[in-house]
Structures are given as structure tokens and as C-alpha cells.
């Protein structure tokens, strides 16, 4: 049996939970899905639509708001009681906050950010990206089961999760949480001041990465954006450096976009960036490194120096 840990924020199920369910179902093993919280009947009912052996609701007032300590305590008890063959989770920020501590407390291997599963004799190998996605590794978890595995967002399709003919049974158990042992106190989640730039509405986007090398070169990309009638955006390092405002950042910590045309200039294509733009209709990559992962998702590519190619593009567009 594979135990999937679903994720929700204030009663709203994270779609990535379905992706983890799809990954679990594709192993061919029975699947159970757990949801933690104080009042998660709605989430449980939604999850019960899955083709699963059972949905387990782990309830405790101390689980009303997510904390790492609360989740680790409750899940360590649940995993011990259920003794699954493996535990699958979506590789969200929340999973990254608690899963390593859970694995350490259970003394089990944890493989993170996996892209797929391969058969390995009687066991399994997990494919995961290394070196910013430039290489992939087939990895064998060692030590006693259950191994914990997190799956990269988008590695499996949420709509590939099979629905059951009838709703799966829902079982509610009391979470094994000692509130006194929860050291983190979480305040309510909030958004920063409303984003002034809504890049999700842009039809065309020109996006820059480390290859732009300096703030003084951003005008090179601005000219291309003007010639294309495009919005200017960037990968995280550019915004970290303060060269463009954070509100123009594309990726897992910024905006998710799917324009008609996405032009990536000097962006290597770390997964944190790709998740924010790979749904674009047409992707153009200009990068000097032919092995850059951005070419994995690009429809058209030019391997070359953006400082030569981009002015030529502006001339060709305006000519």
C-alpha cells in the first residue's frame, strides 16, 4: 500500500495532491490518502472521489493551522500505524518544511523532487533531477521501508488520477499530537501588497535570466519586449539581485504564466522557473549553453550569445 499525504490550505485542496495520487496509483499498489487538520471533511470528501482504498482524516485542534512539529508528530504515528510500502507527497514548500524531519524521526530514506518511478527487480528506482535539472539520476532508496518520496509539481498530471466508481471510504482518527511539543506558532498566511503587474494576462513575455549579466544590460531585453509588444519578466536570481522588481518574477515563488509567446533570454531553466512558464503556447530560448534545461521545453532555440542575437532580432522585427 502507498500512503499519499494530501495538502490543503484553509480547506482548499492543493492540486498537487492529485499528482501524488496519480503517481501512487501508477505503481499498481493499493492507495490510501491522508489529510490532516481540525475540520477537513470537505477536503476528505473531495479526495474520496479518487480510486483509493481509503481516505484517512487525521484530526486534532493543534492541526488547524499547519506547523512542522504538529505534522511530524501526527504523521510519524500514522505512518507507523499504517506501515505502508512507501509514502508519497507532492514536493511543495509545505512538504519541504516537514518531510525531512518526518523521515529523520522515522529513520527512513527520503527522496525529494522525483520525476518518475522505474522498476528495479522487486523494488523501485526514482528518477530525480540533479545539478539544476541538467542531469537526471536513477536513485535507489536504502534501508527499511517505508521510503518517503516527494514528486516534482507537474511531473504527474492531476487529471491522470483515476476516480473510483464509488466514493472511497473515509475514516477519521484522532491525531497523535501533543500541543505542548509543537514549538512553532504560525500566524495567518498573507499576500504582500497586491501585485501591480499581472503577467498572467500578458500575450507575450520576454524574460531574462542570469545570462543578462548586469542591470545595465536590461535595456537589451527591453528593446526586444518593445518590438514584440511584450511584458518584461525575469527568473528569480534577477529579482533577488534587485535588477527587476519581485513582482516581475516568473516561477514557483513568483507568477505562473501561459502566454502565446514566451522568450527566455539567458535563462538556464531551473525547475523553479520552468513550473511558472512551461504552459506557454510557444517558447523561444536563447542561451549560450546547448545543455541548458530551458531547451527541454523550448519550441524554438538559438544557441548563442544573447547580446548578439537579441539586437539582430530587434532589427529583424523592426525591419
Amino acid at each position: 500500500m502507498i500512503l499519499v499525504i494530501a495538502e490543503h490550505l484553509e480547506g482548499k485542496l492543493n492540486r498537487a495532491s492529485w499528482e501524488a495520487v496519480a503517481a501512487a496509483q501508477q505503481t499498481g499498489e493499493p492507495v490510501k490518502i491522508a489529510a490532516l487538520g481540525a475540520a477537513v471533511a470537505g477536503v476528505a470528501a473531495e479526495l474520496a472521489a479518487a480510486d483509493a482504498a481509503e481516505v484517512i482524516v487525521v484530526e486534532h485542534p493543534a492541526l488547524a493551522a499547519y506547523t512542522a512539529d504538529g505534522y511530524v508528530q501526527a504523521l510519524a504515528a500514522l505512518v507507523t500505524a499504517e506501515a505502508p510500502a512507501a509514502v508519497f507527497l507532492p514536493h511543495t514548500y509545505q512538504t519541504r518544511d516537514f518531510a525531512p524531519a518526518l523521515a529523520a524521526r522515522l529513520g527512513r530514506a527520503l527522496l525529494t523532487d522525483c520525476l518518475g518511478v522505474k522498476a528495479d527487480g522487486g523494488g523501485r528506482l526514482f528518477v530525480r533531477p540533479m545539478f539544476q535539472g541538467k542531469l537526471h539520476a536513477d536513485v535507489r532508496p536504502l534501508g527499511p521501508s517505508p521510503h518517503l518520496v516527494t514528486f516534482q509539481i507537474g511531473a504527474y498530471r492531476a487529471d491522470a488520477a483515476a476516480r473510483g466508481a464509488a466514493p472511497a471510504p473515509v475514516r477519521t482518527i484522532a491525531g497523535a499530537v501533543d500541543p505542548a511539543a509543537v514549538r512553532q506558532k504560525a500566524e495567518a498566511p498573507f499576500q504582500e501588497a497586491k501585485q501591480a503587474v499581472d503577467l498572467s494576462q500578458a500575450e507575450r513575455i520576454v524574460s531574462i535570466g542570469r545570462g543578462i549579466k548586469g542591470q545595465e544590460h536590461i535595456q537589451v531585453a527591453e528593446k526586444l519586449a518593445a518590438a514584440l509588444g511584450a511584458e518584461l519578466a525575469a527568473s528569480r536570481p534577477i529579482c533577488d539581485a534587485g535588477w527587476l522588481p519581485m513582482e516581475r518574477q516568473i516561477g514557483s515563488s513568483g507568477q505562473t504564466v501561459a502566454p502565446k509567446l514566451y522568450v527566455a533570454l539567458g535563462i538556464s531553466g531551473a525547475i523553479q522557473h520552468l513550473v511558472g512558464m512551461k504552459g506557454s503556447q510557444v517558447i523561444v530560448a536563447i542561451n549560450k549553453d546547448p545543455d541548458a534545461p530551458i531547451f527541454e521545453v523550448a519550441d524554438f532555440g538559438i544557441v548563442g550569445d544573447l547580446f548578439e542575437v537579441v539586437p539582430a532580432l530587434v532589427a529583424a522585427l523592426n525591419g
Partner: peptide, 12 residues
Amino acid sequence: APQHEIVRLYFP
């Protein structure tokens, strides 16, 4: 005590 081993590393 290693928790995993890389069986193969390759360009995707």
C-alpha cells in the same frame, strides 16, 4: 549510513 544510492547519472 547512506540513505540512497545513485544507480545511474545521465543527461535527460
